[in-house]
């Protein structure tokens, strides 16, 4: 009798953490199509929001007159310079704080006090110190990158399993060898995810820093376009920033895949 012997029904459906490959592309296409449609029918006045094809045209004209690479080049130079400087210093301080008791005791409160300062507020000070040119911009980015790098490096080093360090000690490895062979690779996942945060901070700060005292760079370009109500240029600049951010995170993804193959 089926009434007295009911079949078990499946009730474990859903809540699967999977993604569909085509879904994001479709969503992009739909959003841009809807945007284009709204602009073409006049729902979206082009003074306030240019249509996608106007943005494309603006990007194309930038490409043709060669200014595209001037702006991107200037911004990239500042990002790379500031990010390298800030990351290097941040890694050194983070490692010191993770390894040495004294550095940690001094470093933690100092970092806690300075981390919350919006670094862009210090730009005028840096302009006074370093002049209005490149060094003040690079210093702003470097400082903005420094603090999150210190914090993520410190906690990454702190989270390297103690048992691995004790194992290395029990085999008589020297302190530098332990740092190089155990702590550095063990902290690498945390350091790389710190790089994701610090690179996006560098992108934010470069735009802000370029709004003072320069004619080139994506930030300067966006500001100038805004002042002249050239919204197609403005949105084109924003698209460039998004592409730049995507490229950086793609590069970091490659670095993670190569360096963390063991996970």
């Amino acid at each position: 009798m089926s009434e007295t012997q009911p079949t078990v029904t499946f009730r474990g459906r859903g809540f699967v953490p999977a993604t569909k490959r085509w879904a994001p592309w479709l969503a992009f296409v739909l959003i841009i199509a809807a945007w284009e449609f709204a602009s073409d029918t006049g729902l979206l006045p082009s003074l306030f929001m240019p249509s996608p094809h106007e943005v494309l045209l603006a990007l194309y004209s930038l490409l043709v007159d060669g200014k595209l690479f001037v702006h991107i080049g200037a911004s990239l130079q500042r990002i790379v310079g500031g990010w390298l400087l800030g990351s290097f210093a941040g890694l050194c301080f983070g490692f010191a704080m993770g390894i040495f008791v004294l550095a940690r005791s001094v470093g933690l409160p100092v970092v806690a006090a300075l981390f919350p300062i919006p670094k862009i507020a210090l730009l005028p000070l840096f302009i006074l110190w370093f002049g209005i040119g490149e060094p003040s911009k690079i210093a702003t980015i470097a400082l903005g990158v420094f603090f999150p790098t210190v914090v993520s490096t410190y906690s990454a080093v702190d989270n390297v399993p103690r048992n691995l360090i004790r194992m290395a000690q029990s085999f008589g490895l020297s302190t530098p060898a332990i740092v190089w062979k155990v702590i550095l690779p063990g902290a690498m996942p945390g350091i790389l995810s710190g790089f994701r945060i610090s690179s996006s901070i560098a992108l934010i700060l470069v735009v802000a820093a370029e709004m003072i005292g320069t004619q080139v760079g994506i930030g300067a370009f966006v500001l100038a376009a805004g002042n002249l109500m050239q919204t197609d240029q403005l949105v084109a600049g924003v698209v460039l920033l998004s592409l730049l951010g995507l490229t950086i995170s793609w590069l970091l993804g490659i670095a993670e895949k190569t360096l963390l193959r063991w996970r």
């Binding site: 048992n163 691995l164 004790r166 194992m167 029990s170 062979k181 155990v182 690779p185 063990g186 690498m188 063991w262 996970r263």
Partner: peptide
């Protein structure tokens, strides 16, 4: 030493 949790470097 030989450790209970093996203490192998995963990388």
């Amino acid at each position: 030493f030989v450790f209970q949790d093996f203490a192998l470097l995963p990388w």
